[in-house]
Nucleic acid binder design. Structure first.
Lengths: 347, 347
DNA sequence: CTGTTAGCGCTTTCAT
DNA sequence: ATGAAAGCGCTAACAG
């Protein structure tokens, strides 16, 4: 019994007032007497008219109360990753009370044409995989907040990945500073290359100039190695295309089977570090005695693991909140958030 | 250099053709010569016109290529829960290739007015917490797919929660069938009451008629108890308002401190079971020797835990896929999906 | 305080 | 194959 489908016009006619009056009753209380307003509102409620059609209003006003959350990858990937989920939580926490809704959008798309006309703007969580999409975002006349990367002068939220990687790597190398033991390092990298493959990352594979967080972290790791006088040949770095248990396991298996066997594993995410630790334990290796492992992100599961993973904790939820606030306030700032070195028993 | 903002009309004028022709070039290739079409399309590309404004088109056509995913609770909760995330993944997997985007919507809202005019319909994952919202959904002229509950004749996807709970409870009670030992059972329930509180669920608290999955599971547990001749007083069932480690811990602590101390813990989610197992182990209790624990859902983390949690595995991703397919095909079916009893070492 | 009216940008008959 | 025009439902400027 949903009955008649009301429009502002038909309601106005039915009530014997002009449509502007009905519109005002809903949108501009100061434009009509309190009494008349209540009268109209309750009549509408009675009749089952829930207010002006939002699509039409948006077409007219150009605002939508919807923001697109652009994910680095497919939607599928996003919700599998606890770090990404925390970020989303932070965003939602700020946006929901404002009556702003979140539209999920895949970073694999070529452009945002499908949604651009429905949203007030974009929050991009991580550099979208599809470079065409990045170009498209850059030329839009819509607001954009970039997270974990920079987009030509738009608002952004980042941490200092280089410094963070440097610090956590130093923790892993602590035991080797007196040169009584030799550090054999391997790096399990996340999205160092633009490929779906698990493979080693030789120096000549690396693009000349790349400011992605993976490369910043790699640079941080390398600085730490250098300062500790630890050398590492360029066949001991792996690319993992996605932060998942399965893929990380495979890469960890490869890494733990090279000679000389690594006794230090620098991982670019906690999920990877966890997978590596599990693999090591299954192979009978003692962590941290025979193998030191560090992660990156600071997810709960890695803290509950035995041994707890030494890692860089970043507050993803706060990141999401910041991004949402920049969006709401239309601030074109570049924000750098703090991180925290979190000691575990894995080093 | 985003420059002029084109509209279909201005583009048409610029190109010296009518606006219908431009519209047809984008939407109805059969309405004009191939040559003219290509001409127009490439000219538009050149000029930076990405096609007809989607909001205006939607206003005109009444379709949006957006579906709202209604979450049981806040968006925040959704993305914290691995089961919910899997579901979302399934949905996204089906919708993304169709060019349909997902709008996240909180089940705490009073109504869907804010988004109803932007979407083709709703997929509701779990009965929304706000009952007003349910009522509103029921009277809309939009497509709705209900998951894990029923909504007056709309399409739905469910599993047989009663039967599943019955089977997993039987596993927990196996060891007690010969009556040599007495089973002291406690139940850690998820959302048995409509409250934010962790509290015991006395019989007189329970609504007369409630078909929510929590109540179906409770009924299943009780049937198993009854058939095994295990009695349980009504002060040994807890309500946990949300499937999270923190809250489950608190409830588990309460439950493990009652007399006689439980040796069987029936939990309504794996997250709860995990928290309970951790609590038990910290208290020095041996699982399963001194305490048997079962969960519900089948998340990875519970399988990796030591001991692996005996649970009901349900394929959340498949659930999401089914829901999305029902939506796309506009089928008003009630689908019941299978589940699988998964034996761990926690019983 | 209320009513009239011109669009927002598009799709779709209906003529031509 | 193309063009003119109506209208999707609404808001805001303006006149009364």
């Amino acid at each position: 019994m949903t009955g008649k489908k009301w429009t502002l016009k038909s309601i106005a006619a039915h009530l014997g007032v002009s449509n502007a009056t009905v519109s005002n009753a809903f949108n501009r209380p100061d434009q009509l007497s309190k009494q008349k307003r209540e009268e109209i509102l309750s009549a509408c409620h009675e009749l089952g008219y829930f207010g002006p059609n939002k699509a039409a209003r948006s077409l007219r006003k150009g605002t939508f109360n919807i923001v697109a959350l652009v994910l680095p990858d497919s939607v599928e990937y996003m919700v599998s990753d606890p770090v990404a989920s925390s970020f989303m939580r932070g965003v939602a926490n700020v946006l929901e009370p404002q009556g702003i809704n979140l539209l999920l959008f895949s970073g694999n798309a070529d452009n945002v044409s499908n949604v651009v006309d429905f949203v007030d703007g974009f929050i991009c969580y991580g550099r979208p995989r599809n470079t065409k999409l990045i170009a498209h975002l850059a030329v839009l006349n819509k607001e954009v907040v970039a997270v974990d990367f920079e987009l030509n002068g738009q608002a952004s939220v980042n941490i200092n990945n280089h410094q963070a990687a440097y610090e956590v790597a130093n923790q892993a190398l602590r035991a080797f500073t007196d040169a009584s033991k030799e550090a054999n390092v391997a790096i399990l990298g996340l999205r160092l290359l633009d490929t779906e493959l698990i493979c080693r990352v030789y120096d000549h594979h690396l693009p000349k100039l790349n400011t992605s967080i993976a490369h910043q972290r790699l640079a941080g790791f390398r600085q730490a190695l250098q300062e500790s006088n630890v050398s590492m040949s360029d066949d001991r770095t792996w690319n993992i295309p996605e932060s998942s248990e399965r893929w990380a396991r495979i890469a960890a298996k490869e890494a733990l089977n090279v000679q000389p066997r690594p006794n230090v594993l620098l991982c670019m995410s906690d999920l990877i570090a966890l997978a590596a630790a599990r693999e090591a334990q299954e192979q009978g290796l003692k962590v941290p005695q025979e193998l030191k492992i560090v992660g990156f992100d600071g997810i709960d599961e890695a803290q509950l693991f035995n041994p707890a993973i030494t890692t860089i904790h970043q507050n993803s939820e706060a990141k999401g909140q910041h991004a949402a606030e920049l969006f709401i306030n239309k601030q074109k700032q570049q924000v750098i958030l703090p991180f925290e070195l979190r000691m575990g028993q894995s080093t």
